[in-house]
Design a protein around this nucleic acid. Sequence first.
DNA 1: GGGCTATGAATGAACG
DNA 2: CGTTCATTCATAGCCC
Lengths: 192, 192
Amino acid sequence: MELQAQQPTEEGGSIQAAGSSANTPIRPTNNRWTPTPDQLRILQELYYDRALRSPTPEQIQEICLYLQQYGQIEGKNVFFWFQNLKARERQKLREFRNVRVGGSLDLNFGPTSSTSTDRSIDLNFGSRVGYGADGSIMEQRGEYHQEIETLPLFPMHGEDILGNMKTTSEGGSGSRISLELILNSYGDADMA
Amino acid sequence: MELQAQQPTEEGGSIQAAGSSANTPIRPTNNRWTPTPDQLRILQELYYDRALRSPTPEQIQEICLYLQQYGQIEGKNVFFWFQNLKARERQKLREFRNVRVGGSLDLNFGPTSSTSTDRSIDLNFGSRVGYGADGSIMEQRGEYHQEIETLPLFPMHGEDILGNMKTTSEGGSGSRISLELILNSYGDADMA
DNA sequence: GGGCTATGAATGAACG
DNA sequence: CGTTCATTCATAGCCC
């Protein structure tokens, strides 16, 4: 997951048998996919012309299938391609906005900044979420679950643990919890 | 277009290898949690070996506490880790569904298809959704699995489930997929 | 050859 | 949960 060592794709045999003239990605190294000019053109066509940004799985597969005419390609390549392009375009936009604001622009903000709908550029990092402070993820919605903010004085049974545990960052001190123990905590006593 | 500046060739092994045994901050410049090798190993062990997919809050807490021996970690990290791994593995499995290449519309896209080799991607499975974008490679560690309580499936964390439909086809039927088809695949009624 | 840039790939985090 | 966003890692390719 975190390891960068990419597992060698075992299928390092038939790469691109197509002896096309202009669609050879230069080097059929098994490493990372590089779109052929044709593939790229088609992808861009889909993205820009058709405004396809997040293709559904079905679309991904169809696109992939179609693009295989022009060279080897896998579904994940298509997926990543769209995702990357989208992300990077958006990031550029965001960057631009920040620059614009930081640079000189000063939009007409009324002294009364009550219009919160106005999307002022927050120079924040982008973390719009309020996880950090003390946590409390409250993720699984739809269930009962109260917002803990300080400390629940009763046995919580829900999903508030997520962020609320900031226990000692120090380890190796005696707190030897075994995996078995963890696993055995299925029917953990709810202290009830 | 984007900035990226990192050490080109990292050791790739222990990222934190330095002085401290197991609980070094690992990475200096990031806000987001990155599992240490030890943490990762244990998490994977829990996931694959023990088939733990959706830990309860109590388990999350215990796991978190245990993992703190190896580095800074919070409950939400554990929570997200499991959720992500589960979701991504599921994507890959779900990916098996293929598109029904029904309409063989031929379009004149691209360079007049100079590649006369009509690769055939004949996948008439006619099914439903399937994510097509995530053939991640997780270095599969031990796969021996034990039944804890629920039955662990066979963790076939291969890697190219998604990119399964590569150019493998050598023979040919002519299954030209058009972009129109791709784009029209939205309301693709499969519930026939 | 060595750095730089564009971009593929991975994954933590979060949304609906 | 499935999907999407954001950030980072790693590498192909180009320029010097």
